[in-house]
Amino acid sequence: MLEVKDLASRYGRIEVLHDVSLKVEPGKILALIGANGAGKTTLLKAISGVQPISTGTITLDGKPLNKVQASERVKRGLAQVPEGRQVFGGMSIEDNLLLGGWTSSATNVQADLQFAYETFPVLFEKKDLLAGSLSGGQQQMLAICRALMSRPSVILMDEPSMGLSPLLIDQVFAAIELLKKKGLAIVLVEQNASVALSIADDASVMETGRIVLRGTGKELQQDQRVKELYLGHA
């Protein structure tokens, strides 16, 4: 279980996250929606430890992470699919996956590699090609599989549907629901609010660095403000 309490973070002297709290349990999806620049990516980076925080606490399964290095947080079961996919473009697809298993044992890596290839056969077909040669959708699959290679208990996903065709978006969200069934705790950042809310257990709306609204996915789907601002209909 991931819990964030009263988190603040700044770039230089400008504070971009204020008093952010959230909680997500195993087998649940927390959707985080908000406009451009609201601070969603900064929040995920802070949770992963690649963005410093000024106040607040982050705990994973009850243990504080504040003083734990980013790389060590992966070992503890926290993974992130970063914004813009960030695959290692000049390396093969298989190497990308193997690097995803950096913190895992060799036997787990082999099993997980197998699983990734079975789930997304296209990755197997192209396993020796450079990741940079994949289409956006395929890179997204790769980024998700790479994050799963560390066998996380909590996964943070930053706009996994960005730039994908509707068909691929369906595939990605189907994969996310599968992860939920497997018992992962998922934080899902999305601009594509309608799909995100429809699969989310809980949801929060972020505006200018604050969480301004929270509820279940269903509640927020019905919320008038959310409908106007994020679902594009009144």
Binding site: S48, G49, V50, Q69, A70, S71, E72, V74, K75, A79, Q80, P82, Q86, V87, F88, G89, G90, M91, D95, L98, L99, G100, W102, T103, R146, A147, M149, S150
Partner: peptide
């Protein structure tokens, strides 16, 4: 070797390398 690949990974994308658990 995985460690050798890790060096390559860092050269390509430090953020992603950190996020897979590589201690840069």
């Amino acid at each position: 070797t995985l460690i050798g690949k890790g060096i390559l990974a860092i050269s390509q994308n430090q953020l992603a390398a950190t996020l897979v658990g590589i201690n840069v």
